[in-house]
Structures are given as structure tokens and as C-alpha cells.
Amino acid sequence: MIRMEEKQPAGVHCFSLENRRKAVITGVQDIHSFNENEVLLFSEAGKILLKGEQLHVRNLNLEKGEAEVEGRVDSLSYLTKNAHKKDESILKRMFR
């Protein structure tokens, strides 16, 4: 008997955090960037920014829409489309 793994229904997003050390996110569409202090990913709910220390993307399965991040999570932010524009300097915005 062949068992096919189930995908999450479109539009479903979930975030769980265990002891600030292990984050499991569903509804993940892609990871934009990551380093040991930040992980920026795209999800069904929009952009998500995780900040912390010694962050590591331990597991990523885009077919299932799942990601697992380990390390010390200090904050989680859902970003709007214009969120990065506030953080950019005036010179960067002027010389695009």
C-alpha cells in the first residue's frame, strides 16, 4: 500500500514555538533569507521575520509548506509590504 503525504490546504498557516528554542511554521511558501540572527520567510499569512540568536533552518519542505527553525527565538513579526521601506535610509530610497 502506497501512502501519499498530505499537503496543507491552501491558505492554512500555523506557528508554534517550543521553549523559545524550536519554531515550526506551516503555510510556508519560500525562505527569502536567513542567518544566525534573522530568518525571513514568505507564508500564506505574508512575510514573517524571526529574530534571535544561533538560528538555524533545520528542516524545510516547500512541497508540504513546512519549516522548522532552531535556536533562541527573541521575536516574531508579520511584515506588511512596506515594512522594509521604514528601515531603509533616505539615501537608499533616493538612489533606487
Results as ranks from 00 to 15, higher is better:
Leu49Tyr: 08
Leu17Ser: 01
Ser43Leu: 02
Leu79Ile: 11
Gly52Lys: 11
Glu5Met: 05
Asn59Arg: 11
Lys92Pro: 01
Leu91Ser: 10
Gly52Phe: 11
Lys7Asp: 08
Val24Ala: 07
Leu40Thr: 13
Gly27Ile: 06
Asn37Glu: 12
Lys51Pro: 01
Glu36Cys: 04
Val69Trp: 00
Glu6Asn: 12
Ala67His: 07
Ser43Tyr: 03
Tyr78Trp: 09
Leu62Gly: 03
Met94Val: 10
Ile31Tyr: 03
Asn59Lys: 09
Arg3Met: 08
Asp30Phe: 03
Val69Met: 00
Ala23Ile: 05
Pro9Arg: 14
Val39Gln: 02
Gly65His: 01
Gln8Asn: 12
Glu63Ala: 07
Val69Phe: 00
Asn19Asp: 15
Ser43His: 02
Asn35Ser: 12
Val12Gly: 05
Lys64Thr: 01
Thr26Tyr: 04
Lys85Pro: 02
Asn37Val: 11
Tyr78Asn: 10
Gly27Val: 08
Phe95Glu: 05
Glu63Phe: 08
Pro9Gln: 13
Ile48Arg: 00
Gly11Ala: 11
Val28Tyr: 05
Gln8Ala: 15
Asn35Tyr: 06
His32Tyr: 09
Ile25Gly: 01
Phe15Ala: 10
Glu53Lys: 15
Ala45Lys: 15
Glu44Ser: 14
Ile2Asn: 11
Glu38Ile: 11
Asn19His: 13
Gln54Ala: 14
Gln29Phe: 06
Gly65Val: 00
Val73Ile: 15
Leu55Lys: 03
Ser75Ala: 15
Lys51His: 12
Phe95Gly: 02
Thr80Gln: 15
Ala10Gln: 04
Ile2Glu: 09
Met4Lys: 13
His84Phe: 10
Gln29Met: 08
Leu49Thr: 06
Leu55His: 07
Glu18Asn: 12
Gln8Pro: 02
Ser43Gln: 03
Leu41Lys: 01
Glu38Met: 14
Asp87Cys: 06
Pro9Ile: 11
Asn35Arg: 04
Ser33Leu: 02
Ser33Gly: 09
Ile48Phe: 03
Ala83Met: 07
Arg58Gly: 04
Phe34Met: 06
His32Val: 14
Leu76Pro: 05
Ala83Gln: 07
Phe15Cys: 13
Ala45Gln: 15
Leu62Phe: 07
Asn35Cys: 07
Gly65Trp: 00
Asp87Val: 09
Ser16His: 09
Ala67Met: 10
Asp74Glu: 14
Leu17Gln: 02
Val57Leu: 14
Arg58Thr: 04
Glu70Asn: 10
Thr26Asp: 03
Leu40Met: 14
Arg20Ile: 05
Asn61Arg: 04
Glu5Cys: 05
Thr26Val: 02
Ile31Gly: 05
Arg20Glu: 13
Arg3Gln: 08
Arg58Ala: 14
Leu55Thr: 04
Met1Phe: 08
Glu53Cys: 06
Ile2Arg: 09
Phe15Lys: 04
His84Leu: 11
Ala83Arg: 11
Ser77Asp: 13
Glu66Gln: 14
Ala23Thr: 13
Asp74Cys: 09
Met94Trp: 08
Asp87Gly: 08
Leu76Gly: 03
Cys14Asn: 13
Lys64Pro: 00
Lys51Cys: 13
Leu79Thr: 14
Glu44His: 08
Asn61His: 01
